[in-house]
Design a protein around this nucleic acid. Structure first.
Length: 266
DNA sequence: ATGACGGTGTGGCACCGA
């Protein structure tokens, strides 16, 4: 089973690219962030025709908005963080019913935070704390769990093109990285780092100053899996191809491949 | 020091993103 996450920075603008990508990457589930559209404008029909007949949508006008689009049935959909009042549409939790495999999937568009010390940064940390609690509840359930999305956090210095120059700036602060580590402490693993990866692997590049061409990026889009799934992770990759499109999203998709079931101990 | 690019909504620009 393949699960992907992609911040598309407006689904209205990016729908053709999403459909094109799905045609070439027949993932089972694609998690989207930054839809920037309301539920009534979500392209259910186009996605169904593409083979993704099961969608959970949590949209919002202008900003935010997340969706899970799937070849397999979804159930038990939760919108936003349980126990946190939030006016922004940033989190979807669903159960995916793939043949012979059920899992709980959490798709998040984490708060940006703008600048350490700002009100938005305080909101980011508050949101992360709420997410931690939400996930603690989810991890305690029986199903294996996958957490994906645009975290807006570099996990460590390997995830940034300029660890010295960007030290303690937004996406790089000790506070944010401790929150990321706190999620791992719940029993989750960074699927990308289970494998040897090319140096300077990033998932986001600024639109400005030819950042993509110069590979001045950040790895802020992540896929975390629960310990129970660890042995089933076959691969985790970033697909830079869509970033080369005309009018691309500033983010690239991240994909994880899971084996159908745990390897039998021969 | 600032803005650089792109999307949205409004309206001829401001705002937000990362």
């Amino acid at each position: 089973m393949k699960i992907a996450t992609w911040n598309v920075n407006s689904l209205s603008i990016r729908l053709p690219q999403v459909l094109d990508w799905l045609a070439n990457n027949r993932v089972d589930v694609l998690c989207l962030q930054e839809l920037k559209l309301t539920d009534d404008k979500f392209p259910l029909q186009a996605l169904e025709q593409a083979g993704y007949g099961h969608c959970a949508v949590f949209g919002q006008k202008t900003y935010n908005g997340v969706a899970v689009i799937s070849r397999h049935p979804l159930s038990h959909v939760l919108r936003n963080i349980q126990g946190l009042t939030d006016e922004q549409a940033r989190l979807l939790t669903v159960t995916v019913h793939a043949p012979g495999a059920e899992l709980r999937l959490v798709n998040g568009y984490f708060v940006n935070g703008q600048e350490p010390g700002s009100e938005k940064f305080a909101y980011k940390m508050h949101w992360l704390q709420g997410l931690h609690q939400h996930l603690a509840t989810e991890v305690a359930q029986t199903l294996p769990l996958v957490l994906v999305g645009d975290f807006n956090i570099t996990a460590d210095d390997r995830d940034t093109h300029d660890p010295q120059g960007l030290k303690e700036t937004i996406h790089h602060t000790t506070e944010e990285r401790e929150a990321f580590a706190g999620l791992l402490a719940l029993g989750l693993v960074d699927a990308f780092r289970l494998f040897e990866q090319p140096e300077k692997s990033y998932s986001w590049w600024d639109y400005r100053e030819m950042a993509f061409r110069r590979n001045k990026g950040l790895r802020i889009d992540h896929i975390l899996v629960s310990q129970s799934l660890r042995e089933q992770v076959i691969a985790c990759t970033i697909d830079r191809q869509p970033r080369k499109n005309e009018r691309p999203s500033d983010h690239a998709p991240v994909i994880v491949e899971l084996a159908d079931r745990a390897p039998s101990s021969a």
